[in-house]
Amino acid sequence: MITTPLTLDLVRGGAELEPVGHGSRLRLHRLPLPYRSREADAQLTMVERQPSGIHLRFRTTATVIVLRLHATRVSYRGLERARGQVDVLVDDVLVQRRPLEAGDALELDLSTGGATPRPGEDDVVTVRPLAPAEKTVEIWLPHNEQVDLVSLDSDAPLAPIDDPRPVWVHHGSSISHGSNAAAPTEIWPVVVARAAGVQLRNLGFGGSAMVDPFLARVIRDQDADLISVKLGINVVNADAMRARAFVPAVHGFLDTIREGHPDTPILVVSPIHSGIHEKTPGPGAFDPESLREGAARFVATGSASEVARGALTLEVVRDLLAGVVAARSDDPALHYLDGLSLYGADDAVAHPLPDGLHPDTETHRLIGERFAAAAFAAGAPLGR
């Protein structure tokens, strides 16, 4: 078997590969070192290591490919959570979907706040048998577990591929990260990227899309042909800002991106429908009754009476984001997309959000298909 070095020309969609464990593993990161070491809190540190949108991509005649990886996941005592999956595509056709079975776990007890580490072994993903003809192979890594790459072996050489497709940089919250989707190619940004024929750099981070200035600098400094930012739900859910702070923060966010991308199309996307926060501010919290039932659902704990004093709801955020884009009418490459066109109140009846915030796999696909049509069709804001 041939061992192929793992480098960023083979591992696409990430920022860095960090040697860990005496260099025997390479830890995937979606944020560059200066930002993740200085400005990322514990939540963002955890989720930026989860390789949403990251995949291995190469040409080969190999009939057998073996990827060894070591995963780390967060689990919750008393709650069942599906494991991450590895999706293997050959010439853009899904040929294998392999759930992770091993790896480390950090088990959290939501009732006490305690955390128990549970170490585990490597996962070995074997892809066989493959036809001996030359082909493009993509191995999409789990979007919802930290992954360290250990080794990549095959019975024929693996060669990186130059990729002429436009680069789409997308920033958003846990929904953009892929929460509640079953597999890495089922999250809505990947559904969009495959339909639109673009390279995805996914900067969707669970619990962490807070209009952070440093994220604007990350986007500013990225190679990008197309940019979208989906803002608002986590600001509401964390009760992180009032309207007075939110509006200038979004203007500043866009100003920073424009420093590096003066003419690049940018699409500002408002939140999809979430009944708990449409008219009620945050903070959001786990519903205690659902935890007693062995499930996890969210509730809004704020008061609608605070809206008059600037508290944010999803309805307010959509109006404010539309107003920000309208106020920047001198920027012809800046556009607005109402998140309700991706998933609205009627969709909540047909496709309810299982936990009150995050779409399931079928709804991720619905959102992705609608976004691809609204954003990437000919004549659309990100279309070509």
Rank of each mutant, 00 (worst) to 15 (best):
A156E: 09
P157T: 10
L158Y: 11
A159P: 07
P160T: 02
P160F: 06
I161E: 14
I161D: 07
D162V: 12
D162K: 10
D163F: 02
P164Q: 12
P164R: 14
R165W: 11
P166A: 14
V167Y: 02
W168M: 01
V169I: 01
H171I: 09
H171K: 09
G172A: 04
G172M: 04
S173Y: 01
S173E: 05
S174P: 00
S174N: 04
S174C: 00
S176K: 06
S176D: 11
H177I: 01
H177Y: 07
G178I: 06
G178D: 00
S179P: 06
S179G: 13
S179C: 15
N180K: 11
A182K: 14
A183M: 10
P184E: 11
P184T: 12
T185D: 07
E186A: 13
E186Q: 15
I187M: 06
I187H: 09
W188K: 03
W188F: 15
P189W: 00
A195S: 15
G197S: 05
V198F: 11
L200E: 05
L200M: 06
L200S: 05
R201F: 12
R201E: 12
L203E: 12
L203A: 13
F205T: 03
F205I: 00
F205V: 03
G206V: 07
G207N: 06
S208W: 03
S208R: 00
V211T: 11
V211F: 01
D212L: 07
P213G: 04
F214A: 06
F214C: 08
F214E: 06
L215P: 10
R217M: 03
R217T: 08
V218W: 05
R220I: 07
R220F: 08
R220E: 14
R220M: 11
D221K: 00
D221A: 07
D221N: 13
Q222P: 00
D223E: 14
D223G: 10
V229W: 09
G232H: 01
G232A: 02
I233H: 04
N234S: 02
V235G: 07
V235A: 09
V236P: 02
V236E: 05
N237Y: 04
N237S: 14
N237F: 05
N237T: 09
A238H: 13
A238T: 09
A238L: 12
A238G: 13
D239L: 00
M241A: 08
M241D: 04
R242S: 05
R242M: 04
R244C: 05
R244N: 08
A245P: 05
F246S: 11
F246W: 04
F246D: 13
V247S: 02
V247Q: 00
P248L: 03
A249I: 02
A249R: 02
A249P: 07
V250D: 12
V250L: 10
V250Y: 05
H251P: 08
H251A: 05
F253G: 03
F253M: 02
L254Y: 01
D255N: 08
T256W: 12
T256E: 15
I257N: 02
I257G: 01
R258V: 06
R258N: 09
R258P: 12
E259W: 02
E259M: 01
E259L: 02
G260A: 06
H261Y: 08
H261L: 04
P262R: 03
D263H: 15
D263N: 14
